[in-house]
Amino acid sequence: MNYLFVLVVFTLLFLMDFKELQQANLNEKIVYGILLLAALTYAMFFEARFTTNSIVTVIARIVGLIRGISLPPQFY
């Protein structure tokens, strides 16, 4: 049911942009497609508990690695 909800939300987002996309050139359509698919995939992964990382977590890990800080397990 949750996956269905995610799909419905993203379909609605797509339909909201559909009119403008028809006037867009190929370059714009490609960028839009990549972003929408990335968001949809991320939402599905999140729903499947496949990932708990966000971009902020990734940056914290990289900076932590460079600075030699190991993140406390309860944090991430």
Binding site: E20, L35, A39, I55, V56
Partner: peptide, 25 residues
């Protein structure tokens, strides 16, 4: 990316921002 307009990018980026904000802290 040399686009004509940014307006149609707003909603997919918004979805990514909302998901990332939810998972960040």
């Amino acid at each position: 990316f040399r686009l004509k307009s940014y307006k149609h990018l707003v909603l997919p980026i918004g979805a990514l921002v909302a998901l990332n904000a939810h998972l960040s802290f």
